[in-house]
Design a protein around this nucleic acid. Structure first.
Lengths: 193, 193
DNA sequence: AGAGCGAGAGAACGTACGTTCTCCGATGCG
DNA sequence: CGCATCGGAGAACGTACGTTCTCTCGCTCT
């Protein structure tokens, strides 16, 4: 079944592309590096993907699914809405401790290509908007105001860039503590009203 | 006085480089674009700067001075330590409203070159560490715990990336509100102790 | 005025990239 | 056994980049 092999090969190429792009930056990884690492010929590569930009887009799509899965899994562990929100920062802490953690793919890609690749920039915007919407749903469930979701999203973004640049994972803990404070403050204020 | 002209030319080139690099990304702007926009010959350009990377480093140095100046100016407007801390987020709000705001130069550059240019990565790290230290001094003055400074820094970083990606400036207001909550919570907790 | 120095314009060089093309061997079928 | 088709390896092509070199012009100093 050749179609199966095609699909497997696509996945392998995307695995390799994800790893190399994330580790070195997109512009620093040529199609030849992809070819060598994936063990595919250039011809086959261009049969599977029409261009480099399409590979980048598919890699981002995969990362988006991965991220959404991680968020959902983390959220599922919490008993209360408050716990579910805080579980996001626990997930971040585990991620930051990965040896090959190099920051948020979407933030990095936006910094590298956002100014010149509108489709990529749009993809990043949609991803971040989706994450904010997920937080907003949890906040609404907890009975908090919409502004709390924005604040929690900013904490998550800041933790990712801070951890990436500083090269340490402690930002996750700080963000979690800040999130707890903000949640409790917002909820007692709402409840007192 | 030829030395004076040299210095003026250097400044002009750095002005142009800052604008183009910030607007399009560093790798997307070649030496020829710099030459054309600054009205300098390539020969002169390489007499003034030994390489493109040195231009990038000088641009970052200038941005660091600019940023530190903005922070100091903002902080100087506050009467109390709390006001001084919050003034940082007011400064961010004004910056985000600039038409050509495209996020934090340091975060963008780290995303683009951090993986392949160690000197640049180090420069970004130092800049962020310096900002955190400035916040820590203000927090200490206010009598807050060190962890508060980390939380406030994360808020500032998150506001910058969120504003850049979303293309709106509202993140500054959310970060400011969150900062106020965190400061008040930390200070009452400390005071009550 | 003539010679020498410096600067500007841009051609040239080496490299690397994204993409396409060519060759060539293997494989399947009559 | 011969032929045709497919895929792999990598050469080739066009472009763009960072950097250097060459040529020419104009100014200055005697």
């Amino acid at each position: 079944m050749p179609t199966q092999t095609d699909e497997e090969l696509r996945e392998k190429v995307l695995d390799v592309a994800d790893r190399l792009y994330y580790g070195r930056g997109i512009q620093a990884v040529g199609m030849d590096a992809l070819r060598a690492e994936a063990g595919v010929s250039l011809k086959r590569l261009y049969q599977l993907f029409p261009s480099k930009e399409s590979i980048v887009e598919e890699v981002l799509h995969r990362r988006r699914r991965l991220w959404n899965g991680l968020v959902e899994a983390a959220v599922a562990t919490g008993a209360t809405p408050r716990d579910r929100l805080l579980a996001v920062y626990d997930m971040l802490a585990r991620w930051f401790d990965d040896d090959d953690f190099r920051g948020c793919v979407f933030i990095n890609t936006f910094g590298e290509l956002g100014a010149t690749a509108p489709r990529i920039a749009q993809l990043v915007r949609e991803h971040k908007a989706h994450f904010q919407a997920a937080l907003a749903a949890l906040v609404a469930e907890a009975g908090g105001p919409a502004s709390l979701a924005s604040q929690l999203a900013i904490l998550a973004e800041g933790a990712q860039t801070t951890a990436a640049i500083a090269g340490t994972s402690e930002a996750a803990g700080h963000a979690r503590a800040a999130a707890a404070t903000l949640i409790d403050s917002a909820l007692t204020a709402t409840r007192a009203r």
